[in-house]
Amino acid sequence: MTIQAMNKVILASGAALMLTVGAAEAQQKTLTISVYALAQDEYKQIVYDPFEKICGCKLVVETGNSVERLAKMEANKANPVVDMAVISMADALAASRAGLIDKVDTSKLSNFGKLYDVAKDPNKDGMSVGYTFYATSIAYRSDKMKIDSWADLLKPEYASHVAWPNVTTNQGPPALYMLGLALAKDTADLKAPIEAVGAKKAEIVTFYEKSSQLVQLMQQEEIWAAPIGRFTWAPFTKLGFPIAWAMPKEGQTGGMNVMVATKGSKNKDLALQFMDYWISTEVQTKLAEKLIDSPANKDVKLSDAIANNLTYGEETAKSLKLIPSAVALDNRAGWIKTWNEKVGQ
């Protein structure tokens, strides 16, 4: 490459840089949101684009998993970048303890009354509003095994065909919690279930970190069963194997995702307007029909075919055995420590 060509490249890069910076400044009214990376094209179509039309503003979207985005919010605490975020219930409590978020003024949410009661104030501190649930249970090959209890996964004839979620994933602690219930040793430190999993460490196929891996492993018949969140269920049904969703006698666990408003945000009202739009019956119905988010709005009516692929209905939502956020936060470091000792060794 000649110097002239290189100069051109640098000039072009510099111009591109300035354009990006300039474009950001030109917009007057922007709302910055921080969300999960899941199904962004559908969200854009169903939520973001219509909202931009309604508010006459610009939406800037940050994506990533819950903990990484929380770490960034923490670093930007003095000068917040995002106005509202959707994160897990436990991370919402962590954000509230770290002083990163404000109370949600629910009087400004016209759709608030339509939410399931469990979603209205998940952490009982007024800092967050639930917008979707998911059940976590076991997806398994019904031709190879029969699952009636979470403990069945550790049976000698099954364990070598099971993928178990790593403790650092969102599904890890809930699955361990259910195993604890099955073993009748459900202490908050999850010691008994972690030890039980650790004892089967050599047999268990993998301790997965990315749920996306599981479809691949199921297709290769590397695994027959894995605890998964309902939101990853759909691809399993397309594999051409008889795969069933377990209804263990201990019940199903799961999680709730919530919306929070950043402390020090300059767009408080716009953020509330956006939250209100997201929990509206119209948006929640469309997101459910695309099998993206199970609704938290009780006015949403779904066909059986759709409902079957989601976690639908107030009764179902209420029946999920969720780990209380405070328990999750206070024990997280201890769970990882025990896990590293029993499973990572």
Binding site: E68, N166, T168, T206, R332, V343, G344, Q345
Partner: peptide, 18 residues
């Protein structure tokens, strides 16, 4: 399969989870 802990895995746990 996260059965084998490495230093970088511990590092990631500390940054992203804890």
């Amino acid at each position: 399969g996260s059965k084998v802990l490495m230093l970088e895995t511990l590092l990631y746990q500390q940054v992203a989870v804890s």
